[in-house]
């Protein structure tokens, strides 16, 4: 990648807990180093509403849990050069997948009707429908880099981003693992 031009970095948060984004912020003052090399063009951390074209690197946190997640991912993929499955949810569907053995209906009934809410009802307005199963990103699109971890540590994230910025494929097996 061209050294003289700043890379365009995006991050997005699908079916996850935002823990990976928190960990990203945990790289602390090194954010300033990063800022010299990349522009954050889309992220829950910045105020941009539309996912832009021509993104160099996108970190995708979270599994595909809803139709909206899938819709977003399909939009991101053609606009991104390097798509990074960021954290266990994006890679394995992790916690969101714990509903999978039970199916959507049983899950919703249990959570919204049987758990003893005051006015039990399953929300349908303004929420995207759940996919039959929460799934990892690579079941639908090509993923270029996987960063396992729940969440990946700040060091791992910083290292991985630096490698990507330098045009290398990060070798992460010694730094992180599923559930790290």
């Amino acid at each position: 990648m061209k050294k003289n031009k700043k890379l365009r970095l995006a991050t997005i948060w699908l079916d996850g807990c935002s823990g990976c984004h928190m960990s990203f912020l945990d790289i602390d003052e090194r954010l300033l180093l990063l800022a010299e090399k990349v522009d954050i063009v889309f992220s829950p951390l910045v105020d941009v509403k539309v996912f832009p074209e021509d993104v160099d690197i996108t970190l995708v946190e979270g599994a595909l849990g809803t139709e909206e997640d899938l819709h977003k991912l399909m939009k991101i993929r053609p606009r991104t050069k390097i798509l990074v499955a960021f954290g266990d949810c994006a890679i394995t569907a992790n916690i969101p997948s714990m509903r999978n053995p039970f199916g959507v209906e049983d899950t919703l009934n249990y959570i919204y009707l049987e758990m003893g809410a005051d006015r039990p009802q399953i929300p349908t307005q303004g929420v995207p429908p759940l996919l039959p199963r929460a799934q990892p990103l690579h079941n639908y699109v090509k993923v270029d880099v996987f960063i396992p971890g729940c969440p990946p540590s700040a060091d791992t994230i910083f290292f991985a981003l630096n490698e990507l910025i330098e045009g290398r494929t990060p070798q992460l097996s010694q730094m992180t693992r599923f559930g790290a």
Binding site: A85, I91, T92, A93, S97, N100, P101, R133, P136, H138, N139, V143, F146, P148, L172, S173, R177, F178, G179
Partner: peptide, 18 residues
């Protein structure tokens, strides 16, 4: 878990059976 790390399995290509 550690075997996956050692053998550099960073994702699973087969569909989870759940």
């Amino acid at each position: 878990q550690s075997m996956a790390q050692r053998l550099e399995v960073d994702h699973v290509r087969y569909e989870y059976l759940h």
